[in-house]
Amino acid sequence: MKAVRLHSYGEHPTLDDVPEPKLLGPWDVLVDVGAAGLCRTDLHIIEGQWDPIQHPHLPYTLGHENAGWVREVGSAVHNVAPGDTVIMHPLTSCGLCPACRIGQDSHCENATFPGINANGGMAEIMLTNARAVVKLDPALQPRDIAALADAGLTAYHAVRKAAADLFPGTHAVVIGAGGLGHIGIQSLSAITSADITVVDRSEAALELARELGATHTVLATTDDEVARAVTEFTSGGAQVVFDFVGERGAELLAPRLLRNRGSHYVIGYGGAVNLPTIEIISREINVIGNLVGTYNDLVELMTLTAQGKVTLHTALYPLEAANDAIADLDSGRLVGRGILVPTPVG
């Protein structure tokens, strides 16, 4: 089968012919991949940023946002059957460790992370397990929802955690209205009552943000100008700032947009938060990390999707054009989410 494989850090992945995966255990599930999302994390993987954390054995297949149709199941699997349309939680969790026992799949002690430390879904077939698959309405097309497996899940997870603080009269600021941020905006609109101010350097992204429910939008020029505009729109700063960029200065701007006792939710990454400790304690502000989301978060997100409250804005690429998609993402030409499909785009 065809698969997009990373052989060396700092080099483009290649489209290789590799053997099809096989069932290895009773809880395994093989999926015919219908679509695989392209994420900024994939850029960081190619750069080697994840090597110290996950230590993947190169070469391996990229792709951690995956959806498709069940091809074959192990002897113990009963929650899905061949032919079912499914989206995959990014991690294949064990169900037995303390984190799994309380539903925190993302922190499973025995998980694999397809596309990051194991073979992923930028291929024709992928191997996952029963705990990772969410059965969907067969009317849903994998290419329309695949990126919700990580970009959508991560954005929803952050909003879900902050929802109790975003009651009527509060303000949320979203930095970055791209692949993650445009899902965050929709999630905020769907499950909170906060006013939403969106900051982005792209006029096209801000136009999309307004269509999706943003109350105010701010073009990212200088930090001082952004801070002044946000302070005005939020009447003194936001209760919550969601940083979907996490690098290139966004992580330094975010705390300036908070009011006292506000929370900076870090979702994008690549930079470094730099806050004087006296500012943290004198303002009583919080910096909160967000890693993917739980299985139940994904189920809730798919419910919102089925209700039409969350939709993905996508650009489709055939599998063999993976490096074109990567270049478009890296250059900022993508608005929404890049999706790789193993069959010709039509």
Score class of each variant (00 low, 15 high):
185 I>A: 09
186 Q>N: 07
187 S>M: 00
188 L>T: 04
188 L>Y: 05
189 S>G: 11
189 S>W: 00
190 A>L: 02
191 I>H: 06
191 I>D: 08
191 I>P: 03
191 I>L: 05
191 I>R: 03
192 T>S: 11
192 T>A: 11
192 T>M: 05
193 S>I: 01
193 S>F: 11
195 D>H: 14
196 I>N: 07
197 T>G: 12
197 T>F: 05
198 V>Q: 06
198 V>P: 06
198 V>W: 02
199 V>C: 13
200 D>V: 03
200 D>T: 06
202 S>F: 05
202 S>D: 13
203 E>M: 04
203 E>W: 01
204 A>F: 04
205 A>E: 11
206 L>D: 09
206 L>G: 11
206 L>T: 05
206 L>M: 10
207 E>V: 07
208 L>I: 13
209 A>H: 03
210 R>I: 00
211 E>I: 02
211 E>V: 05
213 G>Y: 06
214 A>R: 01
215 T>F: 07
216 H>F: 13
217 T>I: 07
220 A>N: 11
220 A>Q: 07
221 T>I: 07
222 T>V: 10
223 D>L: 01
224 D>I: 10
224 D>P: 00
225 E>V: 03
226 V>W: 01
227 A>C: 05
227 A>G: 05
230 V>K: 03
231 T>F: 06
231 T>E: 12
233 F>Y: 15
234 T>H: 11
234 T>N: 10
234 T>S: 14
234 T>M: 09
